[in-house]
Amino acid sequence: MNPENAINILLVDDEVKFLTAVADRLTLKGFTVTTATDGDAAIEAAGKGGFDVAVVDLQMPGTDGAEVLKILKQKHKFIEIIMLTGHATVDSAVECTKLGAFKYLEKPYDFDKLIEVLKDAYHLRMQKKFETNANRMEAIQRLSMGQSPLGILKELAKLDDGQK
């Protein structure tokens, strides 16, 4: 198992056979994979936290991929999302990019390409977290000068907001 692959992935697709095959392949490569067969289940699973990257099918019955993307990006500051689609259009690609998708892949895709994109997404997530933590440390240092202990706690709570 490649330790570089120790990434927590949320995989979302209404095509169960596709979901199972991709999850099995990623698991064999050492990734940790959780699956969801619809948008609502994906949002619920993400609510428990711990995912580095979500791979989401765009066209699903009920809550579709674009909606899942929007909600996950709103609720989970650092999650990176890769969109999958069997029906790629310029409009949908633009919409997903505007909503904050890391990448937009068209089915069927090359599996090695998916692995590469997953790693890139994970690195971006870690980079963003690192930068945010560095900024946070700076802010804490500034706060510690001239603030009461209660004031510091209040400001820290603000800084922690949306870090999940």
Binding site: K17, V22, G86, P108
Partner: peptide, 16 residues
């Protein structure tokens, strides 16, 4: 779109 889903499943399963 439907055919692409079919191809994607075959592609991933043969890959597995």
């Amino acid at each position: 779109h439907e055919l692409k889903n079919v191809m994607a499943i075959i592609s991933e399963t043969t890959g597995l």
